[in-house]
Amino acid sequence: MITITHLDKHFDRLHVLKDISLNVKPGEVLVLCGPSGSGKTTLLRTINGLETIDSGTITVDGETVDPKSREIRRQRQGIGFVFQQFNLFPHLSVIDNITLAPRKLKGLTRDEAEARAMQLLDRVGLRDKRDVHTDTLSGGQQQRIAIARALAMEPPVLLFDEPTSALDPEMVGEVLSVIRELAQDGMTMLCVTHEMGFARDVASRIIFMADGRIVEDTSPGQFFSAPESARARAFLQDILGH
């Protein structure tokens, strides 16, 4: 589904991604973790063409992703992205946030788009928020709307960039349970997160990154019980607080 080969990227002099290769099969849920500055968010953003790359290739569904090509817009429609800061459109109501892209990009009528949006609102448990302004919602609600907005384009792949990092602790659960249900439905997903309990339950693979490299690519069971690298052991110790 997603194939990345020998990917390299610099920010000025900083080498943020070093020779990354990765293969994601349909229905897999990958959790990307690692210390801050390890390049996991940048890697996720390159898959959506939000960052340019220096060398290497990214293909999604057999097509090369290149932010400078004309195809990038059509490709992005098939790669949903959920941001750490939600980035809902504050000048639009909840329903318009969800329906804008399907109406303008897929040519759906307002009725079609809204019918579909209502199903998505049901799915994220926010049917009653249909007409409110996004700024009146809590962080957890905003993030669930952002997930619905990404799903409205019916993408085969969803990318999550630390979807719960900007949330108050009591709202983390409601967002994770939405993502969990998507995983059960067989959605292909890549998720950058520090929620290790969630990773253990939901991930089919854990990708551990440090200093711009993939250090471990393994099953959750393996990763949490017997991590191979010293970096991963140190990371787990810090984050789990043993």
Binding site: G80, F89, L105
Partner: peptide, 25 residues
Amino acid sequence: RGQSEASLSLGFSGFETFRYIILPQ
């Protein structure tokens, strides 16, 4: 910046992003 990134990630073009997302705000 997140506003235009969110719009681009949905598949909108630069002009559409300006027209539907940036300009009204």
